[in-house]
C-alpha cells in the first residue's frame, strides 16, 4: 500500500523549462520527508503539484489515499499547506487571518476564534495579534502563515521552507511543534535549505536536482554514501602547513586537501578516535602547533554538495576567477 504521500513520474514543464522531470516519492504515514535541493531544483513545484495548486503534465499523485488529479476537492480536506512565501492578508490582523482560515475549514465562528487565540499564543504573536499583518516583520509573517497551516490538524502537511527567515529561538520552537504534530500521526513533507533541519526532523531525505530525485534514504545512509570520516587540522602558523601535510599523508586514506588562507588541512581516514590520537601525537612530536583538530563525519552539507555537484561548479568558478587575476 502506498504511503500517505505518493508520487510517481511527476512531470511539469513551464514553456521550455522542465521544472519536474519524473519525480517519485513515497512517504509512509506518520513520517517526515525532507526534500532537499538547490534553488530551482523543483521543490516548490513538487509541493504545488501535490497540494492541488498545479496540475502536473504527467504522472500520478496520491495524498492521504486519494488521487490528487482525480479528486482534488477531497484531497484539500486532508491537507495543510504553508507555502514558500507567506500567504497572509496584509490588511487583516493576525487574529482575523487565522479566524478566517479556521472558518474556511468549516469551523464554527466561536471555535475558530478560540483556535486563533491559542495559535497566536503558541507562535509568540499574541502581542501583535490585533495589528494588521502589514506591520509584521518577515519572521512574524512567516509564523502567522505557519499558524494558518496548523489551524486544523490535517493528516498530511506540506511545508515549503518553513523556517527560512526565522530566528534561532522561533526555529527551535517550530521544530518542537513539528515533532509534536508528527508524534500525533501527521505525515509531513518539508522542504528546506537548512540541512541541519532535515537531519533533525526528517525520517527520510530525498535530494532533488533538475526536477528529479537523485538520491533518497535516511540521513545516515546518505552520509555513508558520501564517504567516511576525515581528520581536519588547523595549524597555528602558515609555515607549518607543509610539515603537517606530510604527517597527514602518512595516516590518510586519500588525498590531503589544503586551504592556505584558513590554514586548514583535511584528509580522509579510517580508524576513528584512536587514529586521531596518533595524528595528534605525531604533530606534537614535530613541534607543529595546532589551533584546532578533530574527526569530522560528513554532514548533510557534504552530501548535498557532492550529490548536486555544486562544489565542482564553485571550484571551476574559483579557478576561472584566479586565471582572470593572473592575467
Amino acid at each position: 500500500m502506498p504511503g500517505a504521500i505518493y508520487a510517481e513520474g511527476l512531470v511539469k514543464t513551464f514553456g521550455d523549462v522542465r521544472a519536474l522531470d519524473g519525480v517519485d516519492l513515497d512517504v509512509p504515514e506518520g513520517t517526515v520527508l525532507g526534500l532537499l535541493g538547490p534553488n530551482g531544483a523543483g521543490k516548490t513545484t513538487t509541493v504545488r503539484c501535490l497540494t492541488t495548486l498545479l496540475r502536473p503534465d504527467r504522472g500520478k499523485a496520491v495524498v492521504a489515499g486519494v488521487d490528487v488529479l482525480k479528486h482534488p476537492d477531497t484531497v484539500r480536506r486532508s491537507i495543510g499547506l504553508s507555502g514558500q512565501f507567506a500567504a497572509v492578508d496584509e490588511y487583516l490582523t493576525g487574529r482575523e487571518n487565522l479566524q478566517m482560515v479556521g472558518q474556511l475549514y468549516q469551523m464554527k465562528a466561536k471555535a475558530a476564534k478560540q483556535r486563533a487565540a491559542d495559535l497566536l499564543e503558541q507562535f509568540n504573536l499574541a502581542d501583535a495579534a490585533d495589528r494588521p499583518a502589514k506591520t509584521y516583520s518577515g519572521g512574524m509573517r512567516r509564523r502567522l502563515d505557519l499558524a494558518a497551516a496548523l489551524v486544523v490538524s490535517p493528516p498530511v502537511m506540506f511545508m515549503d521552507e518553513p523556517t527560512t527567515g526565522l530566528d534561532p529561538r522561533n526555529r527551535q520552537q517550530l521544530w518542537e511543534v513539528i515533532k509534536q504534530l508528527v508524534s500525533g500521526g501527521t505525515t509531513l513533507l518539508l522542504t528546506t535549505q537548512y540541512l541541519e533541519e532535515a537531519d533533525h526532523l526528517a525520517h527520510d531525505i530525498a535530494v532533488v536536482d533538475h526536477g528529479r530525485v537523485i538520491a533518497k534514504g535516511t540521513s545516515d545512509q546518505l552520509k555513508a554514501r558520501t564517504g567516511g570520516e576525515r581528520v581536519e587540522v588547523v595549524v597555528h602558523e602558515r609555515a607549518h602547513i607543509a610539515d603537517a601535510a606530510e604527517v597527514l599523508r602518512g595516516f590518510g586514506k586519500g588525498e590531503t586537501t589544503v586551504e592556505e588562507h584558513t590554514r586548514k588541512l583535511t584528509v580522509p581516514v579510517t580508524g576513528g578516535a584512536k587514529l586521531l590520537a596518533e595524528v595528534i601525537r605525531e604533530l606534537d612530536t614535530r613541534g607543529i602547533e595546532m589551533d584546532d583538530i578533530g574527526l569530522r563525519r560528513p554532514t548533510l552539507d557534504d552530501v548535498f554538495l557532492s550529490l548536486t555537484g555544486h562544489m565542482a561548479e564553485a571550484a571551476d568558478q574559483d579557478e576561472a576567477n584566479g586565471k582572470e587575476a593572473v592575467k
Binding site: 480536506r77 486532508s78 475549514y105 468549516q106 469551523m107 471555535a111 483556535r115 491559542d118 495559535l119 499564543e121 503558541q122 496548523l150 489551524v151 486544523v152 490538524s153 490535517p154 520552537q173 518542537e176 511543534v177 509534536q180 504534530l181 500525533g184
Partner: peptide, 15 residues
C-alpha cells in the same frame, strides 16, 4: 505547545 494536539479535525462537507 499543547495547541497542536487540541487542533480540530476537518469536518465533512455539509450542504
Amino acid at each position: 505547545m499543547s495547541a497542536v494536539s487540541d487542533a480540530v479535525r476537518i469536518t465533512a462537507p455539509g450542504n
